[in-house]
Design a protein around this nucleic acid. Structure first.
Lengths: 213, 213
DNA sequence: TTGGCATTCACCATAATTGGTTATTGCACG
DNA sequence: CGTGCAATAACCAATTATGGTGAATGCCAA
């Protein structure tokens, strides 16, 4: 198996030096270099062809999240491990959405860092447990839904509502469901009563807000 | 510091026995008991008052995910660590949405398991890197958005579109934006041209699909 | 300063939606 | 064997939305 080539971006010179020593001294790793900012991040990735990028999230100028976005424009597979001293919800969220592969707090031991880099190079997504907790919470928040509020819609009414959400008109719904225009009208009237709305747009908005689709 | 009380649900008798020995023999832990199914899960949690629950995800009868839901009905804080041999996307997703605190593959060493239980009892969310990767991918998928497609909407047009999404009619928008009905009409006509749609519901659907709000 | 664009407004004709009532069919439940 | 409900359908009147043209104002940049 080939060495794992590691490229580091961090504005702290001590971290650059110590990680440089660490990866050069550890069997199975190869240190491409360490840079204090992201001005040349895309070019440096192109140049060094690393297997893993370590990215400090709080860099001056182009921050780590922006750098991840730039790398991801041309390279969707390269593992990028975010390093940070803070576990700020918004930054975690942004970094993950930008396409980061993992997220470590800097309080890890060097052994744990080595382990994490190995894991991320193999396609895993190492995360500090406290980070993982945040991610899970964000995830749960986004996917909590009120099954309670079904509004007692009948199956057919749900069908019709789904077409409304897709942007269909009475006529289109009638065509697609193979029923008459007046029947669509009837269904929609009942939907409005059950949802306590009185227009298609309100119904669509309510359906989407309550994940009725 | 008090011992960490661990309660286990797993249908494999070998795992029950070996983890029983492990946690009884490890300083800082206390083993509440091991059960092969979830029929009494809520009562057992109530009885033992554990600090951490280890839950196999594939149990006969009431599965691990359903068990998590039941526990979460009355106890939102108790750390529940899911154990599984498979890393199936849907199960990961369901377990997390049900309220699981962490998610470990069973290929972990006993030392790593002990470490993970410690972490979860402290409020972390240990995850096997391969699981974490799935979670990140699901997360990224849910939150990917096309900032590119702004559709060249002017600020005012975005305002109007936002009201459409809220379910407002021409009149309501005119009132709320303090402009005339015909002006709203004009804005909406331009929005339709830019979005390539020709009804309020289509505009709302497209706006929401492209996160234009 | 001229051209483009955003924002505002008006009028007209057509099409679509809304709310009301009424009615038939078929299915499930007690 | 009625009762209730979902699903289907029809009719009417009033409101709302759509698509077109045209036009005034103001602002910014070439």
């Amino acid at each position: 198996m080939n060495n794992i080539k590691v490229l580091l971006f961090d504005d702290n010179i001590r971290i650059r030096e110590s990680l440089s020593i660490l990866f050069n001294a550890t069997r199975g790793f190869e240190f491409c270099g360490a840079y204090p900012d992201n001005t040349q991040v895309v070019e440096l990735v192109e140049l060094h062809q690393p297997n893993v990028v370590l990215m400090d999230i709080d860099l001056p100028g182009i921050n780590g999240i922006e750098a991840v976005k730039r790398i991801r424009k041309t390279n969707t597979d390269l593992p990028i491990l975010m390093l940070t001293v803070f576990d700020d919800d918004q930054k975690i969220f942004d970094a993950i959405c930008a396409g980061a592969s993992g997220y470590l707090l800097k309080n890890k031991s060097l052994d744990q860092l080595i382990e994490a880099v190995k894991e991320v190079s193999l396609g895993g997504a190492p995360m500090s447990p406290s980070i993982a907790k945040r991610v899970l919470e964000l995830f749960q928040k986004q996917n909590k839904f009120e099954t309670a509020d079904d509004f007692n819609l009948s199956p057919r009414e749900k069908d019709v509502l789904a077409y409304l959400v897709k942007g269909s008109s009475y006529k289109m719904i009638a065509d697609e469901l193979q029923i008459g225009y007046d029947t669509v009208h009837t269904h929609i009237k009942k939907i409005y009563k059950k949802l306590h709305v009185n227009s298609m747009t309100e119904a669509v908005a309510k359906a989407l807000k309550n994940k009725l689709t």
